[in-house]
Amino acid sequence: MSDNAMNAPISADAQRLLDLLADRATGALGPAEAAELDSLLRRVPQLTDADGRTITPDYFEASAGAAMFALGPQPQPLPSQVRERLLARGREIAREASRQVAPDSSSPAPAPSKPAGPSVLAKLGMLGWLAAAAAVILSVINIYNAQPRPAYRAYRDMLASGVQSVAFAPQGRFKDQNIRGDIVWDKTTKTGYARISNIAALDPKQQQLQLWVIDKDRPAGPQTPIDAGYFSLDSAYLDPVTKDYIVPITARLQVFNEQAIGLTIEHTGGSVTPTMENLVAVAPLK
């Protein structure tokens, strides 16, 4: 096959989309190309190649993953301490999934699928019926409480949509505190979510966390980095299922060329400029 054999008569958008998907699979997308890819994925929802094959957005990534295995080294045994820690994290995630799939088995019994008939009611007696009704109500409350908050669902949807997701890198004195988290960020809409866990509690009357967008193309001055929202570590942002804090990243000013998302501790009510001694973590953007 020649190097030009794939230049088949498909639309220019489809051709470009194929190029960008292959580039992404080999990690070669710059920020402008990533934005172009996002835009094309919206414009060309159904992609087929010159041979009529349906090309999903992860079509080439699956090949690249397989090639990694093919080229990869012999598997190395996981160090036992690493395995233990991974196992603990994995079980935690499985438990979260379990709570989302069904109410906890220790919860009161769920409602029967059909209303109890008179003979059952008679057997239970009024007290039993009230207990059963209370159990139903408690069960519904438990199910509701175990549902991920809308912010978590939005975070998860963004993650699944393929926008970039970058881990927070703890900074300075926070490096020793095992703070975990990441951000999802859509370069097209300039919006995203931060997920934070394992962070020490703050007194909300004194201190709050604040997000910042570091914008390469915004002139230095009081408006950079851009304030992207401040928040307390309270139940408003705590997801009951995952125990993560999920916070929307909402830039207060227009973002031109974002380079990173920063997280600082500020006095309650937020700051105009970040307090660099209190820089908790940074997530570099591509």
Partner: peptide
């Protein structure tokens, strides 16, 4: 199984793929 909350599947998944992913990360 993991998506349904089966914790034992986590260990099996690690046993199956952990070495491969660790090897790739090392490489």
């Amino acid at each position: 199984l993991i998506a349904r909350g089966d914790e034992t599947a986590v260990a099996a998944c690690l046993d199956e793929y952990g070495g491969m992913v660790w090897g790739l990360a090392e490489r």
